[in-house]
């Protein structure tokens, strides 16, 4: 227990942890602030103003239409060709109608908590996952590269226990940060929706769905932190994790995508990691093979492939487990020089 508490203290004392936490909070605060200003509550006065704007626009359009017909008739009387410019029958058939000027178009943006908060859970998860990656990688990577790990092992000569305790400290910290900031994030958007948006139709089912999305976000954050930790431990340097992340990003998102397209592989995006990230947040992600209609005459519905969040759990779970096992195995086997 003392080692666990010490590692929590060590992580909290690290400058990178503090700086990145401040940056994370500033970034999230910036998003919330900007969003709060962009959302406007649709009060009766705002709706009436939008209606008035719409009516005025309609009247202006009618006037323009009438002027256009008059201009067209005058041109016709001078013997000019009018079809190209004014259309047939001087455009009399195109009289503007009130339906063409929907007042909604003049309404300012209003945040709808029910419809849109899910997207912001994904945004939050992305930001915290980045934080998790840096903290997880540097916590063990810097310990290796500065000799801190060796010092610690002289005190606690149980390699797996030491590595496991450090990992537990990272995951605990990430959980704490996720829970606290996640609660503040939810509260902030609820307040935005309450004061400058709408909370209509936010039923218990909506909260339940948001809660499940939050759990998936938490799982992703922990997985990213754990993978970064394991990679940095394998390479005994923070840069190892960063290098692998960049490498995987380039290979998966660019290399595989191009290779699959050139090779003509059906549903090539199923080999791309971001597909599973999208499915993880959206619960399911549909891949469409438009080439399946290439030689079909007439109506064709392209073939589809569904990637579910369970598929994502399998991919990310196996990937995380493999890296973790490798890190602990190497910790047990490799000499510390």
């Amino acid at each position: 227990m003392s080692l666990y508490v010490t590692e929590l203290r060590r992580l909290a004392k690290r400058r990178l942890t503090r700086v990145m936490l401040v940056l994370l909070v500033l970034g999230l605060t910036g998003i919330v602030t900007a969003f709060a200003f962009s959302s406007h509550k649709l009060s009766p006065a705002v709706i009436a103003q939008a209606q008035a704007e719409s009516d005025a626009n309609f009247r202006d359009a009618v006037k323009d239409w009438e002027r256009s017909i008059a201009d067209c008739d005058a041109a016709k009387a001078r013997g000019e060709q009018t079809e190209d410019r004014y259309g047939p029958n001087c455009g009399r058939d195109w009289k503007p109608t009130p339906e063409m000027f929907d007042p909604k178009w003049n309404l300012p943006y209003q945040f709808d908590f029910r419809a849109e908060f899910g997207v912001f859970i994904a945004v939050f998860a992305g930001a915290v996952a980045l934080f998790a990656f840096l903290i997880g990688a540097s916590f063990v990577g810097a310990e290796w590269s500065t000799g801190g790990m060796m010092n610690l092992l002289l005190w606690r000569p149980k390699r797996l226990t030491v590595l496991g305790t450090k990992l537990a400290a990272v995951l605990t910290t990430l959980t704490g940060v996720t829970v606290v900031l996640g609660a503040l994030w939810t509260l902030a958007f609820w307040l935005i929706a309450s004061n400058r948006g709408t909370t209509e139709k936010v039923t218990s089912g909506v909260w339940q769905s948001a809660g499940i999305s939050g759990l998936r976000a938490w799982g992703l954050i922990l997985a990213v932190g754990a993978v970064a930790f394991a990679l940095a431990s394998l390479g005994r340097h923070t840069a190892m994790a960063l290098g692998v992340a960049v490498g995987v990003g380039v290979v998966s998102e660019i290399g595989i995508r191009i290779a699959m397209t050139i090779a003509g592989v059906r549903f090539g995006d199923r080999w791309v990691l971001s597909t599973y990230a999208l499915a993880w947040f959206e619960k399911k992600w549909t891949l469409v093979d438009y080439r399946s209609c290439e030689l079909v005459q007439g109506e064709c519905t392209p073939k589809e492939m569904l990637v579910t969040w369970q598929d994502s759990a399998l991919v990310f779970g196996i990937g995380t487990a493999v890296v973790m096992v490798a890190a602990f195995w190497m910790m047990r086997r490799r000499d510390i020089t």
């Binding site: 400058r15 810097a142 310990e143 002289l154």
Partner: peptide, 12 residues
């Protein structure tokens, strides 16, 4: 024990 050069986390 200390082994070889002293190595510590520089920001602590």
């Amino acid at each position: 024990a200390i082994v070889e050069s002293p190595q510590f986390f520089p920001h602590f």
